[in-house]
Design a protein around this nucleic acid. Structure first.
Lengths: 222, 222, 222, 222
DNA sequence: GATGAATGAGGATTCATTCAT
DNA sequence: TATGAATGAATCCTCATTCAT
């Protein structure tokens, strides 16, 4: 529930402002995708949006704020689009199906919104944990953790977190591969990513039911 | 403007120069790790090395050349250190052991040489396939493909390539996670990465022996 | 790297900007005259104009653009000032008078606008034919050719061009001499330049009327 | 009579040094011609000569000194080649022949030694009278003045100087045009330059004999 | 709110010149 | 002598950000 409602003036102004913001975010998305976040210049964004730099700074205090707001809106839209899917899942759902659907959705969303990817590989020094605008990161991680939690209600929190991190990492890396290819190859990569995740999670989930898989996992190991 | 007087003899370097180059590369490594490749400035590198910008340019024509040389030296050292391990592996080696060793080595190497990671996440707009200085990327991919080839001699080239790409992607993503943690957590993540890879590859390799695993894979599917 | 986001609307300038442009051009003129075009630095121009380098680049993408704009404005002013004089001349005008007037005007203009000269001796490696910003050069040559054409309607195009080139060359060289002197000497040099041109052209023009002069010329020779 | 003979050591060293100097000057000539004097860098010259920058500075204190020495040697060679031709000429020689020969030689020499031109259009701000290294300029002017003197023994010094300047200016401008063309066009331009000079000088010289030409000249005018 | 002008530090790169070896 | 390393100021140009209108 963002407090982006200045408590004054009729909504005339607000409406116009809202339009500007949308316009700017759209432009930013374009520029981020084209040049990458780091290389994107605020002037370029303003130009792309057809406004002056000053106008941009009337709505955002700096470049990062743009990224943050963009991330927020993407998360929002994700929720809108796949809302229920992100809610706790029926633990009875076959893993393959659950993962398959999640991957498909995630990839579809990223293809629809390529900024998403650009933002995830944001301005940070890779290898260091990300920063402020990583609401995105954090939120997604949280969701994955939630999902895993419904499959593995008994796992210790630390293990859940770690597994979520691993899944998300693989997810992202897979996404990069998927986006780097097209057509049949893209589909093939999508398939592989699903395999990676399913096979990774299977033994963990399998334990629930007493089925034991080959690899040992930190989660079901005491 | 024609690149006149570029005849550039081999121009043997002296001992002092060699030392400077080493010094500069070390400084570059530090800066790359600290700020990331993209944000690293040649001036910063020179400063870190304690020399003037001009000196840097006596040895490297530009930032990319530094990255390339750094990459070359890293690959060289990798070969020196793990030389035999990169040679075709005995296909009879248990997968778990092979992957475990490879991951351990890779991670150890990266912990010793954090630049490696910074270089892999190079100057590119993420999502676009990398460029010139991605000898590093290409070389590593080649090696992985070679390794996989000794396990899966009958797999079509395209599948091998894809699988290698997936493994490398997961490898890299895992590395990021590993580097982001320390101590016991780091070890735990290392364990998970091994699991991811082992479980991903097991069914593929298993096929060799007639054992069939759950997930279908593009490799053993016609 | 593609020249993205270069869409650049006409982007109407404001009054203040227009003033800045004028100011910058004036500063550029000063610097060009002082140091010559080649040695002139954009920073020096900005400094001379009392603005920051960034401001200069808000209005001109590079040094050459400044020269071009300056040249354009000079040509414009020249047209404004001597407009009718540059139109085809009455071929009945005595050569001496025509040349005298043209030289006087040209020299007067150059004394008023010394940049003109600096621009003509542009950024080029001397001896190589000039480039883009030589609208100036080209335009003037065209005018001279036109003038000559009205005197020598029957001369082949190639000869006209050559003669124009020669006249212009002598003109420029003479200008250099004139500008290098002052007072009576300057006048004396002006006189000489007129002599050079008149005597050079006389036999060519004289032919029109059947008078033959001593020297043979490529123009009246078949 | 240059004092380039350090008064010590057997000529072993001197010989080697002399070779170095020659080598460097040759390299400098090449670079000057290719890039123009201003843009020529001492490092480029050293590289072209196949020596280190340090070596260059062992023989020349700075870039200009190279130009000066080069100019000196050119003048020297000019004297060697056309020596007697530059000596006072038989005033009975027909002007056309004298000028023709002089122009031909001058142009031939410049085609053989393109640096000459590059040096004449040296580092100076055009329009300002040249500086130190303009021995070249001054020497040539002196010679021309001498030649004119033998044709016009009675002309006042100031007039002689001025006429020489004009001739030299036209000469140089003509040379530029000539060098800018090739083959038949080059010859045509050469012809024109001769015409310019002959027609300019004819009335002056003609006066000697009582013949009066059309244009008045500052020389024979009181 | 909007505009476009203004800033100034910073980035990559070059170059005349000096210095240690 | 010769070498090549070293310098550091200067060059062109960019960009996040601020400000007057």
């Amino acid at each position: 529930m963002p407090d982006n409602q200045q408590k004054e003036q009729p909504r005339r102004r607000q409406a116009r402002g809202e339009r500007r913001v949308a316009q700017l975010l759209e432009a930013a998305a374009t520029v981020f995708v084209t040049t990458g976040y780091t290389a994107a210049s605020t002037n370029a964004i303003a130009r792309e949006a057809g406004v002056s730099p000053g106008t941009l700074y009337q709505f955002f205090p700096n470049k990062e704020a743009i990224a943050i707001e963009l991330g927020d809106r993407l998360m929002h839209e994700m929720r809108e689009t796949y809302g229920e899917a992100l809610a706790p899942i029926d633990p009875a759902t076959p893993l393959e199906q659950a993962v398959g659907a999640a991957v498909d959705r995630f990839i579809a969303f990223n293809c629809d919104h390529p900024v998403f990817f650009a933002l995830m590989h944001g301005p940070d020094v890779p290898g260091r944990i990300a920063e402020e605008h990583d609401v995105l990161h954090a939120t997604l991680l949280g969701r994955i953790e939630g999902l895993l939690g419904s499959f593995l209600p008994d796992a210790p929190a630390a293990d859940l977190t770690r597994t979520a991190q691993v899944c998300f990492g693989m997810y992202k890396a897979g996404l990069e591969l998927v986006l780097a290819h097209e057509g049949a190859e893209r589909d093939a990569y999508t398939r592989e990513i699903k395999n990676v995740l399913i096979r990774y999670l299977e033994p963990l989930v399998g334990d629930r039911l007493g089925r034991t898989a080959g690899g040992s996992s930190s989660i079901h190991t005491p």
